[in-house]
Amino acid sequence: MTTVTTDMPDTTETSPAAAREANERRRALMLLSPGLLWMILFMVLPMLMVIYVSFWTQTTFAVNDTLTTASWERFLSSATYLGAIGTTLRIWAIVLVATLVVGYPVALFIGLFVKNQTVQTALLVACVIPFWTSFLIRVIAWRPMLGTEGAINTILMNLGLINEPLTFLLFSEFSVLVGMTQIYCVFMVGPITFMISRIDESTIEAARDLGASFGTIFRRIVLPLSMPGVIVGAIFVSVMVLGEFATAASLSGRKVNLLGNIIVSQVGSLKWAFAAVAGVVLTIIITAVITLALRVVDLRKEM
């Protein structure tokens, strides 16, 4: 064979398509890098550090980097700390259900029955009004509400429904549950409203035209289509409730000890290794909960 010339470009040179692809990959990397860098510096590295510190040796007033499993053994063999895990999980489960029970009807109302977009937005904004003030104020505001001489007890006594104030209202697990449900409800309402308002009005009309009553339409159309919203809301609420300590500290009168409270008190007394153990346990629990939630609904398919 002698010289055969073709119109094909020289293979050593990159083709325009490949150049374009490389270009796009570079742009994607550029968009990604600030976030990635931030995550590595301020999340991945500290996480690894926490795991590392949890194996350090803790003496009364100091830690040194001799590796030991002593903190882990102490944590896992202590009834108090295992009990804290139980309390955290129980409160998480109750608050999750409570935010769903309170939040879903609100979301259903805003997303399905309010047709006007402006009103929809206004109502959602109204839901976050409590967030215009500080977290601490929001939590502490429950005290004059629930206390023995608080609003609820006064009203009930004046109505003659009770003779002496109800004491379980404040500084109990009950007050923690009430406080947390109120604070985190909006994180449930938002995502569910978003999913419900995305349901095409005509699919609901079509179901109605096919003879389904409102209850059936809710069960078969609205509920399944809003599930991704429920899952996203549940993840928001779970992550925040599981890591909570402030509500429990100020509303339970130190009767309710969550994992978060343990971390705070251990860090306060400079027990770094021990706090790290609790931190790792908490992270494992949160990861497990999120994994579980994502198993229920394939978010990638739905969003």
Binding site: D200, S202, T203, A206, A207, D209, I221, P224, L225
Partner: peptide
């Protein structure tokens, strides 16, 4: 019976 212009099928 109503057949919608945009079909209105149940997406799930």
């Amino acid at each position: 019976g109503f057949v919608f212009q945009n079909f209105a099928l149940f997406p799930h």
